[in-house]
Simulated assay, not measured.
Amino acid sequence: MRIVGLNGSLSSTSNTYKGVKAVLDHAAEHGAETVLFDLRDTPLPLFHPERRDQLADENVYRFISLMDEADGIVLGSPEYHNMMGGAFKNALEWVGGRQFKNKPVALISATGGPSSMTTLSAMQSMVRSLHGWVVPVFGSIPGTTEFKPNGEFRDPAMQLRFMTIGAELIELSKLLKQRRQDWEQR
């Protein structure tokens, strides 16, 4: 089983990255192969609808391939002005229903304020429009969140929440992978 995470934050001290990594680490500890696509290291060009099928850019090709091969997805976006970050949204313009249909998707967002529910709600709506299955527990990372040097949350309740997101993603990935295989055989 392969879980692909997208870090949509460009910040060098990104809490979004740390949240996505926490979910991926939990999935890896439970036997999943995990891959992190980090926009800080692997930037994508601005999406252009007339160039969508021209996969001349190596990073775009790699991103689309990873999303095609994913059994489960972790999406992480910072919250800017009560909305998803531009780099994150741009990345998702390059993919579509083919990459999300009947796949579970965990949602993570970090904000400078107390909660990023506006961004998480927008992400949920986007994933549902692409026929993905949103993991019921969201990962909202407030601006005051502290992390241990090993990347875990200092707050045990936050650490448990992100472990729960990872566990739900794994279970849904197993279930939906089997269903996708069954549906393809019909």
Rank of each mutant, 00 (worst) to 15 (best):
M1C: 02
R2P: 04
R2I: 04
L6K: 00
L6M: 02
L6N: 03
N7L: 05
N7C: 06
S9H: 01
L10N: 03
T13Y: 12
S14L: 06
S14Q: 00
N15T: 02
N15M: 08
G19F: 02
V23W: 01
L24H: 02
D25S: 01
D25N: 08
D25A: 11
A27K: 02
A27R: 05
E29Y: 03
E29F: 07
T34H: 03
T34V: 15
L36A: 08
R40E: 02
P43I: 10
L44W: 10
P45E: 09
H48L: 10
P49A: 08
A56M: 09
D57K: 12
D57N: 14
Y61G: 12
R62H: 14
F63T: 06
S65N: 14
L66K: 03
M67C: 06
D68K: 14
D71Y: 06
D71E: 11
D71R: 00
I73K: 01
I73D: 05
V74C: 02
G76E: 05
G76V: 00
P78N: 06
Y80R: 06
H81M: 04
M84K: 07
G85W: 11
G85S: 06
G86H: 11
G86N: 10
A87M: 07
A91D: 07
A91R: 05
L92M: 10
E93K: 01
G97V: 12
Q99L: 00
F100L: 09
N102D: 14
N102Q: 14
K103I: 07
P104M: 00
P104V: 04
S109A: 11
A110P: 00
G113Q: 02
P114V: 15
M117R: 10
T118S: 12
S121H: 13
M123Y: 03
M126H: 04
M126G: 00
V127W: 01
V127N: 04
S129W: 05
L130M: 13
V135S: 04
V135K: 08
P136G: 06
P136A: 11
S140P: 05
E146Y: 06
K148Y: 11
G151C: 08
E152Y: 00
E152T: 14
P156C: 04
A157Q: 13
M158T: 01
L160I: 10
R161T: 11
R161K: 15
R161E: 01
F162Y: 11
A167H: 14
E168S: 15
I170K: 13
I170L: 15
E171D: 15
S173V: 13
K174W: 12
L176N: 08
Q178W: 12
R180C: 09
Q181N: 12
D182Q: 15
W183S: 09
R186T: 09
